[in-house]
Design a protein around this nucleic acid. Structure first.
Lengths: 221, 221
DNA sequence: TAGATTGTTAATCGATTAACAATC
DNA sequence: TAGATTGTTAATCGATTAACAATC
């Protein structure tokens, strides 16, 4: 197994983003199996559920270090455990969120993220009407305090749900505060130092791609 | 240019999802140029902003059919227009949203999606407390009515923000209602007939990948 | 044992990148 | 003209898929 030095967007140690995205989906399916009392599973069965071929499942699972038994398959419980461990769902990450609009509010209220170890500890905004209020139990603070507080609390993860116009400035402040990873919902590419880990979640692009395909499927039947 | 028949996840007519995702981001940058009064732009400049190389920008832009002038570059206004036209942002898509929780509420309130032609016309939920109420001006209806109403109103696009447990059942009802494209926020792979267009927006996987990278960057410095 | 399934190595495919020709 | 930039064809790279060996 090769270990790259590069930290950003792409591979950090051989595993692709695509695999990294599939693992939680396997995990979900496995929990449904567990809940139904099923203890053993084969790659073919997982693949059937995920619309992919068995060998891809096997490759993905190998990253977690789990081993199966020929003929029997994998232990569901073991698989669930090794995916969770590999993805680090037991480690807690404290995060700051910037932009307490509709989307920011939704993320603040999304308790299920705690399953993955995410704890959003505070929200930041520039709107005086929002500052001082509390959203889903988290205080909204003025965005000017973000960098200093992040540093003081050793926050590692920042979530940007601010409008595109402010996203870069927010990102800069996060970096000043020592944040190392950014989950970016603004529909642009942020300019970041190379050591910062970035995950873009561009709903615009996603929707745009979808409606393009929808339009296209009418044009070419 | 080759025209594939395949409709689902991948290529429909040669353009990749990756390119389809970059185009709206180019578009955003171009509008900032326009607002600053800049009328001409080169691929190198766009690439600089997008952290990618000029030839990739050029390839992407070619899908829109736009042509540039050697030495001068592209016209900003023309580029903006051809991206919008190519992506079909002028066509309106009426959509139903299922799952009026935090995330669903956020999407219902996200006015900027109208720039891409999206009009979410109604929300559906199974919670009697929510049914009948109005969220961001859209009525919440009982999920049992989804299929019939979708058919009656010829809705083409469905948005799933329901919990994973209900996502498949909601998807099935959407398909019964004649919906042709699904924007799925539930963290699983839906089982769909092959002609249905699906765009997964899996926040779990995304966050999980991000925190994996964050953890990994400590382990291997 | 036979057959199913895992694990691994090789081939394919597609996206990105490089090289180069065309043009203003 | 010279130089910058577009447009296009070829090479590279990485992910997916296929082929096959190992094992229960």
């Amino acid at each position: 197994m090769s270990i790259d030095i590069q930290i950003s967007n792409t591979a950090v140690s051989g595993i692709s983003d695509a695999s990294l995205f599939r693992l939680p989906q396997y995990h979900y399916f496995l929990t449904t199996l567990r809940d139904r009392g099923i203890t053993k599973v084969s790659c073919s069965l997982i693949g059937q559920e995920m619309n992919c071929i068995p060998v891809q499942v096997r490759k993905d699972l190998q990253f977690t270090g789990v081993v199966g038994k020929p003929k029997t398959g994998y232990s569901v419980a073991e698989l669930i455990h090794s995916i969770e461990t590999f993805l680090g769902w037991n480690n807690t990450n404290q995060a700051f969120l910037a932009g307490a609009g509709n989307l920011g509010t939704a993320l603040l209220g999304h308790e299920r993220f705690t399953n993955l170890g995410l704890r959003i500890v505070a929200a930041f905004d520039s709107d005086p009407l929002k500052i001082g209020s509390s959203i889903h139990g988290k205080t909204v603070l003025p965005v000017e305090c973000l960098a200093e507080l992040a540093q003081r609390m050793s926050i590692q993860l920042g979530i940007i749900t601010a409008p595109a116009e402010y996203a870069q400035s927010v990102a800069d402040q996060m970096i000043r505060g020592g944040i190392r990873a950014i989950w970016n919902f603004a529909p642009l590419r942020l300019k970041l130092p190379p050591h910062i880990i970035i995950q873009n979640e561009d709903l615009y692009s996603s929707l745009s791609a979808l409606s393009w395909k929808l339009a296209r499927c009418f044009r070419t039947p």
